[in-house]
Simulated scan of single mutants.
Amino acid sequence: MINLLYWTRRRLVPFLAISIIIPFISGCSSLSAPIVVASGAGIGYVLLQSHSRTGKEYWNDQQLDRAITRAINKDKTLTTKYGDTKHINVTVFNGIVLLTGEAPVETQIARIIDLANSFSASRQVINRIELAGKSNLNSRVNDALLTTQVRASLLDSEYLNGHKIKVVTERANVYLLGTVTRKESEIAADLASSVSGVVRVVKVFQYL
């Protein structure tokens, strides 16, 4: 189950739920001894599982990311008809493809989605492309800064392993990808939403 949920300053608003079947892959997850952690306020949880991705999984995601990006950049329909009017980012995690960025025409976005879906390795394509003109340099610099700050917050937390969460930021909207427990997803979203300048947080997690 992948849940996309908007978080706005600790307020949770259901946005979209997408169900997919995730085949069990031997060695992808392991059970560890329960670890009880608690904050000074007395809030804690029990970490029952840890998940480490294999080198093959990383490689497959990188190859799919590059293939989709290359297809979008070289597509004659997009380049000839629309020119350099789009700004698209492709992010892949365990075959789940997240499309973010901006494009000014709906048919342009539809074509990009079709291209992403054309690869057999794409298990699910999630479209978060804004119907708008390309973001400016200041906006992208701000997004890069927010990504760095959110990552630092996740890595600094004693309640989850921030290394297994991927962070993508577009127009101050933060997307979180990874394989986590539901409790970890709540903590990660709460940490990301607490970073100054973040407009909203969207969870694109796969759950243990």
Rank of each mutant, 00 (worst) to 15 (best):
Q149D: 15
G162N: 01
R171L: 07
T179Y: 00
S185N: 07
D190H: 03
V174G: 10
K203C: 02
R171Q: 06
V198Q: 02
D190T: 15
I187K: 07
V150W: 01
R182F: 01
V180E: 09
L154Q: 10
Q149E: 15
L154I: 08
Y175P: 04
K183T: 15
L160W: 09
V204F: 00
S196K: 15
G178P: 12
L154A: 08
H163V: 05
G162D: 03
A188F: 05
V202T: 11
V180C: 06
Q149I: 03
E186F: 12
V174D: 04
V174W: 01
D156A: 12
F205C: 07
A192N: 05
L160I: 02
Y159C: 07
F205H: 01
R151D: 10
I165P: 09
H163E: 01
E184V: 13
Q149S: 15
V204Q: 03
S194T: 11
R171E: 03
T181P: 14
N161K: 14
K203M: 08
R151E: 06
V168W: 00
R182M: 06
G197Y: 04
K166Y: 06
N173F: 02
R200A: 10
V202R: 00
F205T: 10
G162F: 00
N161L: 04
S194P: 01
S193Q: 13
L155N: 13
T181C: 08
A152T: 15
V180A: 00
S193F: 02
T179F: 02
R151G: 14
V204C: 13
V180I: 15
E158I: 03
T179C: 14
L177W: 08
A189I: 00
E186Y: 13
Y159E: 12
N161M: 00
V204L: 14
T169K: 03
E170K: 08
V202G: 03
L177V: 04
L177K: 01
A188I: 06
E186C: 01
T181F: 07
L160F: 00
R182Y: 13
V168D: 05
